[in-house]
Design a binder for these strands. Structure first.
Lengths: 326, 326
DNA sequence: GGTTTGTCATAATGTCATCTTATCGCTGTA
DNA sequence: TACAGCGATAAGATGACATTATGACAAACC
């Protein structure tokens, strides 16, 4: 009692079509005994005769007719499987789940999603916005396909690719416009507003000041860059924000923006995915799109484009300050 | 580049369910390398990865998810095939195409169809009413499953089974009621109305009179027994009809019915089907139903039931005549 | 009426696919 | 660092399936 095989069903279909063992065998590019044996085994497996073998002709039985209808359906479905695979071999298809940290998401995502959607039309993009730690966990769990975070992540199971570097700028109350830019030491004396625990950007900012998260609340916690900027605007303190956030966050706040002297604080933004991800190639291509989107975005607000390589020491000739019109 | 196999799809489904090669292999009652190899080959065939193999877990890719949905559909359909076969192994199912000669059909069919339908509820019965020659041809061509005809057919490729024997009775104008029953010789002198060429009953009647179809139209041709009886009723001649037709055909005609003295003319009605028919067993059972239906039908109109065996010489004690009320 | 032809079934044998056992290599963990 | 879990790989054994050759049988043809 062997099992049903697709081969048997294919032979059956051919025989049902030709009503002739020899011609069906030709159609299947096999010899006549091969099909003969396979049909017999199929019938034995089923426990029913599918064909009525007359001396002059072969004919489907009633049951065979019914069987043939279903078999044709099945074979079509199976062939569609292969088609489906072929069509999605190179094209990225289906759901793409991408995670982004909150200090990037609002500024980069609209552009990225627009570009990706227009380039891969069958793609539906799910975005998850949360802190690095959770993103990495979800990535590892397979609940995300990729994440855009600050590097390095240093997970050996993940591929990291650099997208760009972005500087941090100082956000002060509007009336501080023109005042000398504080250095790190001075910054430590000021009331520095930062994101709450868990945000990588908080750690990056603290790191710039040579402070560590152990140092408790001399500083206030804000839940978003937007909140921080609003608090600065209200004169509560100062904060750092990534360059990319400037256009959006300072639009409706009376604050002044100042760049630090070299070495400017900065972080590297990159994209990560599981090394085992089967869409690694496509993700690499996507990372290109993201990088270009980011470049375009920053060029749009920054007449002097900033090199985006990590190990770059810019000796900024002067302070570039900009207080954007609200 | 091997072909897709049901086995591969089954293994795939198991792995998709368990996300674990070892457990999936257990579920399939095979070793782990077997499933490992088959999945790899499936992926090679498709040209796409179905699973993402992490160090700690195995997970479906996006495409794998889509694939799994379709595969489950396919596997279910395939399993249904086997179920279908099992359920129709003994039960007669689907279409039953049965042919009946015109001198039987109107009298027997209503009962037969009723009985068969109620016994096999999935059965849809197609009836073809035409002359023996065509029935046999259609049977041989596979356009019919069985036929009810007068025996013998003497086709070596067909199985014949006797259903019953039926006598012929003489139909005379109503005013002949009570007149002596003619014998064969006398019959030849009378104006004998018969069915047109091609009906077996015509030949059987002629044969009884020791006439052969070569003998031309001393006699008129009617296209149905009903027509013949109506013509008799109009005084045009006499005719023979099978006993079974009496109740129906003499209902609305003023004719008298007379039985012949022994040896009574008779014919054997039987059922035939291709020896190669896969439903031979079921047809045999059906023939039983037909026989019982016929017996019941004749008993209903004939208080003295007539033995239905072929080689039977009945010395009819008297003439049983019946002119039924219209 | 024997012979030929067409057709499917069966037998013998070879080949390839596929399974099993044994083992490796990697990864995460005690 | 050693160990345990898990999947991949290798080698040998087994089984499925193909091919060629041949048989059986009925139809068709001298």
């Amino acid at each position: 009692m062997t099992n049903l095989t697709l081969k048997q069903l294919r032979y059956f279909e051919a025989l049902a079509r030709h009503n002739h063992f020899g011609r069906a065998a030709d159609a299947c590019a096999i010899s006549q005994p091969a099909i003969s044996v396979q049909i017999r085994e199929l019938e034995e497996t089923l426990g029913t005769e599918l064909f009525e073998r007359g001396p002059r002709q072969v004919r489907l039985t009633n049951f065979g007719e019914e069987f043939a209808l279903r078999v044709r359906d099945i074979l079509r479905s199976v062939d569609e499987l292969a088609d489906l695979a072929r069509s999605s071999r190179d094209r990225l298809v289906g759901r793409l789940r991408i995670g982004v940290i909150p200090t990037i998401a609002p500024y980069l995502l609209p552009t990225i999603i627009g570009n990706l959607s227009s380039m891969h039309d069958g793609l539906d993009i799910h975005v998850r916005e949360t802190q690095t730690q959770k993103l990495i966990q979800e990535l590892a769990d397979g609940r995300l396909d990729a994440a855009i975070v600050a590097l390095p992540v240093s997970e050996p199971s993940l591929t990291e690719i650099v997208l760009f570097a972005e500087n941090f700028v100082l956000v002060r109350p509007g009336e501080d416009e023109g005042k000398p830019v504080p250095n790190r030491e001075m910054l430590r004396e000021m009331r520095l507003l930062l994101l709450e625990e868990g945000h990588c950007f908080r750690d990056q900012a603290l790191s710039f000041c040579n402070m560590h998260s152990a140092r408790p609340r001399e500083l206030l916690d804000g839940s978003s860059l937007s909140t921080l900027v609003q608090m600065v605007s209200a004169g509560i303190g100062v904060t750092l924000i990534p360059e990319m956030a400037v256009p959006v966050e300072t639009r409706s706040a009376s604050v002044s923006i100042a760049r630090f002297r070299s070495p400017q604080p900065s972080r590297t933004i990159g994209m990560v995915w599981r090394k085992t991800s089967p869409i690694a190639k496509q993700l690499l291509r996507i990372s290109e799109v993201v990088r270009q989107s980011a470049d375009a975005l920053r060029a749009q607000h920054n007449p002097t484009p900033i090199a985006h390589l990590l190990n770059l020491t810019v000796s900024a000739p002067a302070i570039t300050k900009s207080t954007l019109p609200q």
